[in-house]
C-alpha cells in the first residue's frame, strides 16, 4: 500500500518537474523563467524524495531523503534570489510587457 502511494507521489512530482521546464521554455524573460521553474522544480523534486521516503519507510534511504527534502527546500529559493539579483545588477531588462520596476527606479 505504501509503495503504491510512494509511486503515485513520484509520478506527480515528475509531472510538476515537466511543467516547470515547459515554463522555462515558454515564459518570456529571465525573471519569469526563474520564478516559474524554481517553484515547480522545487515542489517536484521534493515530492519525488517524499515518495522515496514513503515507499521505503524509516531507514537509511528514508532518512537521507528527508534530509535532502529540507536541504532542497532551503537552498533552491536562495539560489533563485541570488540569480535574480545578479541578473538585475548586470543590467538585464524586464520583459517589454512588464508593468512596473520599482527596483530600477530607486537604485
Amino acid at each position: 500500500m505504501s509503495e503504491i502511494a510512494g509511486y503515485a507521489i513520484i509520478i506527480i512530482g515528475a509531472l510538476f518537474n515537466l511543467f516547470g521546464c515547459i515554463g522555462l521554455i515558454r515564459l518570456p524573460d529571465v525573471y519569469n523563467r526563474l520564478q516559474g521553474s524554481t517553484k515547480c522544480v522545487t515542489l517536484g523534486t521534493c515530492s519525488i524524495l517524499l515518495g522515496v521516503l514513503i515507499g521505503s519507510g524509516v531507514g537509511p534511504t528514508g532518512m537521507k531523503a528527508l534530509a535532502a527534502i529540507v536541504f532542497i527546500a532551503i537552498t533552491a529559493p536562495t539560489a533563485a534570489h541570488a540569480l535574480s539579483r545578479g541578473a538585475h545588477k548586470s543590467g538585464i531588462p524586464l520583459w517589454e510587457g512588464s508593468v512596473v520596476d520599482k527596483y530600477e527606479e530607486e537604485k
Partner: peptide
C-alpha cells in the same frame, strides 16, 4: 539569449539531477 538565462537552466538542471538520483535509489 542572455547569460542569465543559461545560468537559470544550469540551476534547474542541477536540481533535476537530485530527482534522478532519488529514482535510481528506488
Amino acid at each position: 539569449p542572455t547569460p542569465a538565462d543559461r545560468m537559470v537552466g544550469i540551476d534547474i538542471l542541477g536540481i533535476l539531477v537530485v530527482g534522478f538520483c532519488a529514482l535510481f535509489a528506488v
